[in-house]
């Protein structure tokens, strides 16, 4: 089960031309939030919104489609969205909250829901948690450093960033720059090295580019809530889908990458445990499935 528990997996993309244009891949997160806002399934979403500094996102409460779209596209650095959830429920007065999160943030959210210490009445207000696939994440200074020093590019000129085919990609207005991913190693945050979750196993719906062709996303529906909203969005025509078996490269690549991430992380976890360091995971000898996200 390297892909976590899920109900269904499909290839999907937003049918909205505007979303297709600005989205990272299939525009699933934007399409789902816009649809859920329209249908009042959520009354706001905590997203990684833009700040005055290009490529540095900040948690933002989006309450309209425009605000959701302003946050479209992947930023390869942190946006501490979990921190904003309580504010969304309190100062913003939201009662059905959507959020987008990477796997580690989802672990935090689910733990918070299980042990709502200092977050009374928040657990039941999270109506839709969309997870995005994540291999690793970079501190903002790391991102700036390898873009400007290794790629020789001013980050302010970059219009889109992407990771795929073993490379980090940066698109300017009229050029494409790449950096082999092994050159970015050492710049990721330390915690990523022990993370056992590639495909956001704890989300209601998780999505990412891997497994599907350009312009499409792979989507897992994992919970009843996630399945209901996703199916409704497909039915309403805001998202179109294809069977995952009909697209290339398909689930095989996803399984391989998820297994790689887990295997590598498990080795680091075991090493750190052997040194007596505190690690919030079990050692491989302590669990039935050594790759389980526990």
């Amino acid at each position: 089960m390297v892909l976590g528990t899920y109900k269904e997996v499909v290839a999907a993309r937003s049918t909205d031309k505007q979303i297709q244009k600005i989205a990272q891949d299939g525009g699933i997160v934007s399409a789902l939030f816009c649809y859920a806002l329209d249908e009042k399934l959520i009354d706001g979403a905590v997203v990684a919104g833009p700040t005055e500094e290009l490529w540095k996102p900040a948690p933002t409460v989006a309450m309209t489609a425009e605000e959701v779209l302003a946050a479209a596209g992947t930023k390869y650095t942190f946006s501490p969205n979990v921190w904003m959830l309580k504010k969304a429920a309190r100062q913003y007065g939201l009662e059905k909250i959507g959020t987008v999160a990477i796997p580690c943030q989802l672990m935090g959210i689910r733990k918070m829901q299980s042990y709502p210490f200092g977050v009374r009445f928040l657990a039941d207000k999270i109506a839709l948690a969309v997870g995005i696939f994540c291999m690793e994440n970079f501190p903002f200074a790391s991102l700036q450093t390898f873009i400007s020093e290794k790629m020789g590019l001013d980050p302010n000129l970059v219009e889109k960033m992407d990771i795929g085919k073993g490379k980090f990609w940066a698109y300017t207005a009229d050029d494409v720059y790449t950096l082999p991913l092994k050159e970015t190693h050492g710049y990721e945050q330390n915690g990523c090295k022990i993370c056992l979750d590639y495909v956001a196993e704890l989300a209601d719906v998780s999505t990412g580019s891997v497994g599907t062709p350009d312009g499409w996303s792979t989507v897992f529906t994992r919970t009843d809530a996630g399945e209901t909203i996703f199916k409704a969005a497909v039915e309403a025509g805001v998202i179109e889908t294809k069977a995952i078996d009909d697209v290339k490269p398909g689930l095989g690549l996803l399984e391989k990458l998820a297994t790689d991430k887990k295997t590598k992380a498990m080795k680091v976890i075991d090493d750190r445990k052997a040194m007596g360091l505190p690690v919030p995971y079990k050692a491989s000898s302590e669990k039935e499935d050594p790759l389980a996200n526990i």
Binding site: R90, Q91, Y92, G93, G118
Partner: peptide, 16 residues
């Protein structure tokens, strides 16, 4: 948690 020395941690939103 949001009553702080010097005032309050945050104002509420107009919606709230």
């Amino acid at each position: 948690s949001d009553v702080r020395i010097g005032g309050m941690a945050d104002n509420i939103s107009e919606v709230a």
